[in-house]
Design a binder for these strands. Structure first.
Lengths: 229, 229
DNA sequence: TCTTGTTAGATTGTCGACAATCTGCTTGTC
DNA sequence: GACAAGCAGATTGTCGACAATCTAACAAGA
């Protein structure tokens, strides 16, 4: 029998589709931080009943991008400068760990996948599709987590990614100028292919720093705006 | 006006209570790994309808201690040796990070709380209440996470804790001999009060190692038993 | 004017029933 | 006997309606 690994068939529940829809709306910034999710309104828009919608919302609450107050409502999480700093500093630690674990497991398939994802980022950059640019950049970055062969680490990263994606998307929406079209991932990819693990770990920090500085500036702006209310 | 900080009132939804009940049943091992949760049966036992039960189950799925297959059912997660290794190795990294962040924030309140939790462990140990012993030990261990002033880190730790608690509980149930009544946390607490951060970080690793070795042996046993089926 | 009590409307939480899907058994055919 | 088709029962997914709770506006009293 031919060795064929089929991918698992799609979740065919409404719930799963609702989760995907809502997540996308939140992570792209269509639903703004602090915004309330009205169950009746959304369920009517999606043409589903409230039951699967509510179950989907529970999932996203646990995923950390929604927050729920009993009898009051479910809201998109607020974004504070501290949240971003916290997420970022944890990300640094996890990156180091992921690189360490992935390092001895790198093989041709890893390098190929690395190139593939790098290419996807470049393509999104050329197309000036900022949402997709963020998505692909995070996917490129996530490869070391997928390769690290640690399911708990991967889960943690995926949760963290949700937030990071949201932060970056908000940042992008806030500033209306187009994103610089330079490729900031070139060195990162090269180092992951190289022989110096420490150098790769060091760069992972500094590399993110670039985007992070801007992100922080954005968050500080939010803080100020919030304190005025 | 007197400065009184009221604690937020308890969640009074059935859902929240169901979550707590189910979580406890899973983390104490009353619900065994792999076991299926029949919605109708459980909802009748709890005298609630399936709606809040299902929402509660979604939360626990996202929390990582249940797993759901559409139209097939929701099950308690299986425990493999690899899962335990993965959780443990991530825990090591997070511990180091948490200690680093907590270190400059230690104050009298921290030391008091440390003692309080240490006392709770000793009390549970004397009372030979193994479930409570695990709970209190993890709470003692969790203090550095609560003090690290990083909400994302704390969330991550809480998710990890669920799993660790489950693993330890299973381990305890498997072996019927009573737990040794020695206090393995004495040195840990002393080091957290001391001046040598590196030493504390080092010990955090070795300290857990003790319990971990046993845990791993237990998990390896599970593996063997599973492979025979 | 400020505070407190009341009430109507809107929204969330929960329920019971129905629809969709799966599983295992039975039946029929070769 | 082996195998596929089809059926019955059980279980999960979804729906619409009702109950519990919150919010905001308004009225009454100090």
């Amino acid at each position: 029998m031919a060795k064929l690994d089929f991918s698992p068939i799609a979740d065919t529940t409404r719930r799963a589709e609702i989760v995907a829809l809502l997540r996308r709306a939140i992570l792209t910034g269509q639903l703004e931080p602090g915004q309330k999710l009205n169950e009746l309104r959304i369920s009517e828009q999606m043409r589903v009943s409230r039951a699967p919608l509510r179950e989907a919302m529970r999932e996203l609450v646990q995923e950390g991008i929604l927050t729920s107050i009993p009898y009051a409502g479910t809201f998109v999480i607020e974004v504070t400068a501290k949240d971003i700093i916290d997420a970022y500093s944890l990300n640094q630690v996890l990156d180091e760990f992921a690189i360490e674990r992935t390092w001895p497991l790198r093989d041709q398939r890893f390098f190929d996948e690395l190139d593939r994802r790098h290419e996807a980022v470049k393509q999104a950059t050329r197309a000036v599709d900022t949402t997709r640019q963020i998505e692909t950049a995070l996917q490129l970055h996530g490869l070391i987590y997928e390769w690290a062969d640690n399911s708990v680490l991967l889960e943690t990263w995926q949760r963290l990614t949700s937030r990071l994606q949201m932060y970056f998307a908000l940042h992008q929406r806030a500033r209306n100028e187009p994103v610089p079209a330079v490729d900031v991932h070139e060195t990162y990819v090269a180092l992951l292919k190289g022989a110096d693990m420490r150098a790769a770990q060091r760069h992972a920090r500094e590399h993110i720093d670039l985007d992070f500085e801007e992100l922080l500036a954005y968050a500080r702006g939010l803080e100020k705006r919030a304190s005025k209310n």
